[in-house]
Design a protein around this nucleic acid. Structure first.
Lengths: 250, 250
DNA sequence: ACAAAAGTGTTCCTCTTACACCCATGA
DNA sequence: TCATGGGTGTAAGAGGAACACTTTTGT
């Protein structure tokens, strides 16, 4: 029997999405202004990660899709469950009141499931987001966020850097056709390293799933670069073959 | 404003723990019998992963610790959040009634946060678990479990195999001092491969964080094996150094 | 012709893999 | 002395890292 002294029925669940994009130079994250219903205005904490409580009939992925689509529209998006933040004190006082008020409930705590998302960020998406009330902020320019969203963001950056070295998620950031240089710049930005251009090319072009197409850059005042695409089918086929003990650090 | 047609306040949250152990030959998972309050008995579905609803004031890790300690006692345990299962239909009908009844609540759904755990399984733990009403079942002998616990178990096995190649969690399964052979057998079991003994030794012994101690096996009727230990400090120090693009499959 | 970025090769070294026999102990 | 599992070495190949110059285009 569950302990009769404990309560189990006063908890809300939310999703909060950390959506990353790459503008060609820097990593950006999608933020929105908090709509302040009954909370005194604050200069420093009015930005937050997009999120929402989940309704009784909704699964988490649907909720995360709903939340992100509000700001990025119907484009395809890489979306993955990351981590649950469950400190009973993570939302309290006025923050909790704000949520209860906003959703018309009276819960004593809110757990949040953090989602990790990647999109292809371009001019059109930039302005779409703006019209919908969101902003893309370079990671270096992110200051204090509402609730515990700085903590979630830090976890997401960490997750991004790890996953980036494990799986070819780089291509989620780039348009369908891209140049080797764009790809290299992306790796350098995300992992915060410098990469030798010759070695990078050699490595990337040795991958069967990065394929040249019969198109080159146009209208640039230097040698036009070859375009490549990412072939997911080939990646999936080949990724089953390998077995490595990658924990090896000497 | 949250959509006033939706309800947000009728959801319970549970943790379910997949605890793995290695008995020297096979991987085992910790299961417990479901205490059937108001449900017709079933021959095939009376085993489940250990789990519990979380109370309003509890964080997830504490809940997972509480749940596992009931069956493994106070020994140290590797415990990590894995994935949330949030299908609104995942628990319904009699299953849902059983939970509401058991905990004295009336929720319309239960989300569960699956935890992933590893313990050092030995004779003492085996019998401790038995006294507490749990069982260790070899993975090959796990049949139909209650609720969606087979699904959770499959996800946990997958997670284990991936993590095993990424991080030195093998040592969480073994006693403080172990032989190379034990370690190799463990890798072969978890990853379901055969490993060349000479190459395995070479690799393992090249790792600064696997250290020989001045002790050998005793009472065996063959050359007694050297004992080694895992030095976590050295691992942590060295793991910061390396950077690799491990997504590379050709 | 010049500025600007694209593209190209070689050498050295480390790590991986495949493979077969001798060693130390208890019975 | 024998059965049992512990422990050892080498050669060939693949992948990673360091490093500097030529090519193609627009202006």
């Amino acid at each position: 029997m569950g302990n009769p002294n404990l309560k189990y029925d006063n908890q809300a669940i939310s999703v909060d999405c950390t959506v990353f994009g790459f503008d060609g130079n820097a990593l950006c994250v999608l933020l929105e202004e908090r709509r302040r219903v009954s909370l005194p205005p604050s200069d420093t904490e009015d930005l937050k990660l997009p999120g929402s409580l989940i309704s009784d009939a909704e699964d988490l992925l649907s909720a995360a899709n709903r939340v992100t689509r509000e700001l990025v529209g119907s484009r395809s998006i890489y979306l993955k469950q990351m981590e649950v933040f469950s400190d009973p004190q993570r939302v309290q006082g006025q923050e909790l009141m704000w949520i209860n008020n906003f959703y018309g409930v009276s819960m004593s705590r809110v757990l949040t499931v953090a989602f990790f998302a990647l999109v292809k960020l371009d001019e059109r998406l930039m302005s779409y987001t703006k019209r919908k009330g969101g902003v893309w902020v370079e990671l270096n320019n992110v200051h204090q966020l509402a609730l515990d969203h700085n903590k979630i963001l830090v976890a997401a950056i960490d997750y991004l850097m790890h996953l980036f070295q494990q799986e070819p998620i780089a291509f989620e950031f780039l348009p369908r056709k891209f140049t080797v240089k764009q790809l290299q710049k992306l790796y350098e930005t995300v992992l915060d390293v410098e990469i030798d251009n010759r070695n990078f090319r050699k490595k990337i072009l040795s991958l069967a799933y990065v394929q040249p197409i019969s198109e080159h850059e146009e209208g640039v005042s230097h040698k036009p670069a070859q375009y490549y695409t990412f072939n997911r089918k080939i990646y999936k086929r080949d990724s089953k073959k390998r077995f490595r003990l990658n924990f090896v650090y000497k």
